[in-house]
Every structure is written in C-alpha cells, then in structure tokens.
C-alpha cells in the first residue's frame, strides 16, 4: 500500500495519440482506458464493465481494435492510439459516424464510440465486409439498445460510401 495521496512510481510514456506524439508521466499500473480518459481527457472512450467483457472501451492500437481496459498504458510506448475523437476531421463526420447518426446506429450512445472504432478497424482490413463478417467483427461490443440491427445497417451504409473519409 502506498501512502495516501502519494503518487505511485511513474514512467515517461511516449506515444502517438490521434495522430500527435505526446509524453506523459504514467504509473506503470495504469490501464490504457484510464490514461485516455483521465490524463488525455478523451472521455469518448467509455468503460462499461469490470474488464474485457463489453467492448465499450475499444480503441485502435496500430490500427487494430482492442479493449483498452485490459491493456496497460505503458505497454503502448511508441504505438499509435486512435480514439473516437480522431474520426471527425475538418468539420466532417467520418463515413461511419455519419452512417451511425443517420441510420440510428446509436440510441443511448454509450456503446457507440467502441462500436464505431471496432467497425473502423474492420473497414481498414476489409473494404467490403459481408453481413456475417460485420457481425463477427462487432461481436465483442455489447449494445443493449439497438438489438444490433441498425448498427449492422449503419456499417453497411458506410461501406457503400467508400469515397467519404
């Protein structure tokens, strides 16, 4: 046990976050989700469970969608982390964001950032996924509102607009 209020030992973490390099002093036990939310203030990253079970915290690490709540932040040294905050650029929603908005792929919105990031990783690897590929890719992201129907439709709608960013 550390003394109350004292800071645990920290280490300098250098990584690329949403395209920009940055450095922070980070405790070695810090989870990536906490680093992103509490240090980098990227509160679009959500936390929905006690570890690894819901996908709400999904971010991209070097382009792969992973749960940030079971990843130690310091293991991301030198990596590129992308969160939902990076998707809308130059005042435009990304095609996935637009589709989720227009097709009601979001209801309460709590699963949405993780869901969109998981879908973004899918589309980077596979520009024209089938419905079942979409279902598999999103199968670690739980949604309690939509029954996934409009989520799948949103991803399909985004697939049909490959030229939007």
């Amino acid at each position: 046990m550390h003394a109350p209020g004292s800071q645990p030992k920290k280490r300098l973490l250098r990584l690329r976050l949403n395209g920009r390099w940055r450095e922070d002093a980070v405790a070695e036990r810090e989870l990536l989700v906490d680093y992103l939310r509490e240090v980098a203030h990227l509160t679009g990253v959500k936390s929905g469970c006690d570890g690894g079970e819901c996908g709400a915290c999904t971010v991209l690490i070097d382009g792969e969608a992973v749960p940030s709540c079971i990843t130690l932040a310091v293991r991301c040294e030198g990596r590129h982390i992308e969160t939902i905050e990076s998707l809308a650029t130059q005042g435009r929603l990304s095609r996935l964001q637009r589709a989720f908005h227009e097709k009601l792929g979001t209801q309460c919105g709590f699963c949405t950032p993780g869901m969109i990031m998981a879908a973004a990783a899918l589309l980077r690897h596979n520009a024209t996924p089938t419905e079942s590929e979409i279902r598999v890719a999103l199968s670690g992201n739980l949604c309690r509102c939509t029954g996934y129907v409009k989520i799948i439709e949103s991803v399909q709608a985004a697939v049909e607009k490959p030229h939007d960013c």
Partner: peptide, 10 residues
C-alpha cells in the same frame, strides 16, 4: 436523433 452527433463523435 437531435443529439446523435454528440454520440457518434464521443
């Protein structure tokens, strides 16, 4: 949704 943009952008 009128608050959909907030939701999809985080």
């Amino acid at each position: 949704l009128i608050d959909g943009v907030e939701k999809v952008t985080g």
